[in-house]
């Protein structure tokens, strides 16, 4: 339902003769609020690491792809009910999510999550930690029993630290790299190893499409283009 107005850019790839499991057009769902993974650029289009990666994957898999924006908190339900065909939104592969949807192989290696705070000597265990709702980070803090404060978008979690709502924010390191160093925000030394790598999410009934994307990711890994892309956007460590 959340096929959002605007912002989705149709992608004219090679004349798509290959129809993947009945998909003449593959709709790619993303959040558009998670720099540098995916965000909306000044022109109002989806941009970022995953935009480039997704376009390249579709080209290699000979698919016609279309981009769709969706709120993070309903991104899985809308995939499951068929409003788009893939999630490509910096989503870590976890056992919990894997029960509901399927993932391709990871396209970034597992990276730790980091904290950003205003005070470098903060003790996170007694602090108020902000995280985006329904992320692995939010689950992690809840599990630890620390004080969790949840926000709907990544941007708001960082804003909460800036204005003192929360003492620190826990998120993917690459995302926090974009804000650390601004407005007195510092990254803590402590890291948390949570989650596997980041993969593309698909419906469990869509095995054929998954195989195509898997093959495309493998080919990008092999010829080094994936590493180059990761380096360009500074999203993670390389394979």
């Amino acid at each position: 339902m959340k096929h959002l107005l605007l912002g989705a850019a149709a992608l004219a790839v090679t004349a798509s003769m290959a129809l993947a499991g009945g998909h003449s057009v593959v709709r790619m769902g993303t959040e558009g609020a998670y720099e540098p993974w995916n965000f909306i650029n000044d022109a109002g289009e989806i941009d970022g690491f995953e935009r480039e990666l997704g376009d390249e994957l579709c080209k290699r898999a000979e698919l016609t792809c279309e981009w769709v924006k969706n709120d993070w908190d309903s991104i899985i339900p809308n995939l499951v009910s068929g409003n788009y065909d893939t999630i490509i939104a910096g989503m870590s592969i976890t056992a919990e999510r894997d029960e509901v949807i399927d993932f391709t192989q990871p396209y970034t290696p597992p990276d730790p999550s980091a904290y950003v705070a205003l005070d470098a000597g903060l003790d996170v265990e007694g602090a108020v930690i902000a995280a985006q709702a329904t992320t692995i980070q939010a689950g992690f803090i809840a599990e630890k029993g620390w004080t969790l404060i949840e926000f709907a978008t990544p941007e708001e979690t960082v804003a909460a630290v800036r204005n003192g709502e929360a003492d620190a924010v826990l998120a993917d390191k690459s995302f926090l790299d974009t804000v650390a160093g601004t407005d007195g925000l510092v990254m803590l030394d402590r890291m948390e190893a949570i989650g596997g790598g980041v993969g593309m999410g698909l419906r469990e009934s869509d095995a054929e499409l998954r195989a195509k994307f898997d093959a495309a990711i493998t080919s990008m890994k092999e010829d080094g283009t994936l590493n180059a892309l990761i380096a360009k956007w500074e999203v993670a460590s390389q394979f």
Partner: peptide
Amino acid sequence: QGNDFVVCTAAKLPLSNAPQWVHETYG
């Protein structure tokens, strides 16, 4: 099928190969 809500391709609304504006209009 478990969590998935799967109908046949012809029954999808809008058809999954429809252009984006059709999806937007439907929403």
